[in-house]
C-alpha cells in the first residue's frame, strides 16, 4: 500500500498553480489536505502522474461574508467550520451568526475525525465529490456556487452543474477550485442535518439536509430545499419532498409526508453498506429528522 510514483510540484501562488495545471492537464491532480486523495493513492486506485500541492499557496484559506453570501476559501480546513468566523472589512474576526452560522458546525462535527479535520479542506472535499460527503450535500442543498480559476479566466459553477458523478466534477483539468459561495440564510430560514453512519466519523450511509424559509406572517413554508447523499453518484435534491413542504406549516405530520415522498423519489443503488431498500428507509428517517431538527431549532 505505497503510492505509485508521481512528479511533484508545490507552487506558492495561485498563478503558479494555474500554470502547472495548464501544463500538465489531466495528468495532474491537485493535492490540498490529501485526506481523501492520499488513501486512494496508497491503494493505487488513484495514480496521478503529477501532484500539484497547493499547501503553500497563499490566499485560499479566507472566509468572508458580504451581501448575504459566505465565501469559503478552498483551503479552509474542516476544523475551522466547527466555529466559523469571518474577517470583517475592518480586519477584525467575528463569529458567523445566523442559520448558516449554526448549521456549519452541526455538519462539521460529522466530517471524519480530529486529525482529518485539521488537515482536510472544505474545497478538497467539494472537488473530490464523494456523493456521501457532508460538504457536497450542503453545497448541493444550499445551491452553492463553486468558483473556479484557470489561466486567464474565472467562472462560477452552480452546484447543480458542478457534481457530475462519483468523484467527478465539472472542473476542467486546468481549473482550480479556489472558493465556494454559500447563502448565509436569513432568520426566516430553518435548517437541519441528519446523518446515519456505521461508526463515529465514517462516511454517511445516508445523510439529509433540509432548509425551509417561512413566511413571517403565516409561518407557512415559502421555499424548501431537501438534499440527500448516499443514494446516487452525486448528492441530490428531492423536488417532490420540497413541493410537499411548500405552502404548508411545519409539523410532525408534514415532515412525515415529506419524508415519505423523499423515500419514494430516490432511486438508490445498493452496495456493501446498504441495499437500495435500506437506503430508502434511511432517507425517510433522515429527512424526517432533519426537518424536525430544523423546526426544533426555531424554538
Amino acid at each position: 500500500m505505497k503510492p505509485a510514483r508521481f512528479a511533484y510540484t508545490a507552487p506558492d501562488t495561485v498563478e503558479g498553480t494555474l500554470d502547472a495545471l495548464d501544463r500538465f492537464g489531466d495528468e495532474a491532480k491537485v493535492l490540498s489536505g490529501g485526506q481523501s486523495l492520499v488513501p486512494m493513492m496508497n491503494f493505487r486506485l488513484a495514480r496521478p502522474e503529477v501532484i500539484v500541492d497547493i499547501g503553500r499557496v497563499g490566499g485560499l484559506d479566507g472566509m468572508s461574508a458580504a451581501n448575504g453570501t459566505l465565501t469559503v476559501g478552498a483551503r479552509v480546513i474542516h476544523a475551522r467550520l466547527e466555529a466559523p468566523a469571518v474577517i470583517k472589512p475592518d480586519g477584525r474576526s467575528e463569529s458567523l451568526g445566523g442559520v448558516l452560522g449554526s448549521l456549519l458546525p452541526a455538519v462539521a462535527r460529522y466530517v471524519g475525525h480530529l486529525p482529518i479535520r485539521v488537515r482536510g479542506t472544505f474545497g478538497g472535499s467539494i472537488a473530490h465529490a464523494d456523493p456521501a460527503a457532508e460538504w457536497c450535500i450542503l453545497a448541493r442543498t444550499l445551491d452553492a456556487e463553486m468558483v473556479a480559476l484557470r489561466r486567464g479566466g474565472e467562472r462560477a459553477i452552480p452546484a447543480a452543474d458542478f457534481f457530475e458523478t462519483v468523484f467527478t466534477t465539472a472542473l476542467a483539468p486546468e481549473e482550480l477550485l479556489v472558493a465556494v459561495r454559500l447563502p448565509i440564510l436569513g432568520d426566516d430560514w430553518r435548517a437541519g442535518f441528519c446523518e446515519f453512519s456505521r461508526r463515529a466519523g465514517d462516511f454517511a450511509v445516508v445523510a439529509a439536509m433540509t432548509a425551509v424559509r417561512l413566511e413571517p406572517a403565516t409561518g407557512a413554508i415559502a421555499e424548501a430545499r431537501v438534499g440527500v447523499g448516499g443514494v446516487a453518484g452525486v448528492p441530490v435534491r428531492l423536488g417532490g419532498a420540497e413541493a410537499t413542504l411548500v405552502g404548508e406549516t411545519p409539523g410532525a405530520e408534514l415532515h412525515a409526508a415529506a419524508a415519505e415522498m423523499a423515500a419514494g423519489e430516490v432511486d438508490p443503488v445498493g452496495d456493501l453498506h446498504g441495499s437500495a431498500a435500506y437506503r430508502r428507509d434511511l432517507v425517510r428517517a433522515m429527512v424526517a429528522r432533519a426537518l424536525a431538527q430544523g423546526a426544533g431549532a426555531s424554538g
Partner: peptide
C-alpha cells in the same frame, strides 16, 4: 431494520404508523 420490516409485515399493527419519531440520530 429488515427484521423490523419483516415483523411489521407479519403483524397488522405494524410499524408504519410509528415510523417518524422526531428523535435525535
Amino acid at each position: 431494520r429488515a427484521a423490523v420490516r419483516a415483523a411489521a409485515g407479519r403483524s397488522p399493527a405494524g410499524e408504519n404508523d410509528r415510523s417518524t419519531q422526531e428523535a435525535p440520530v
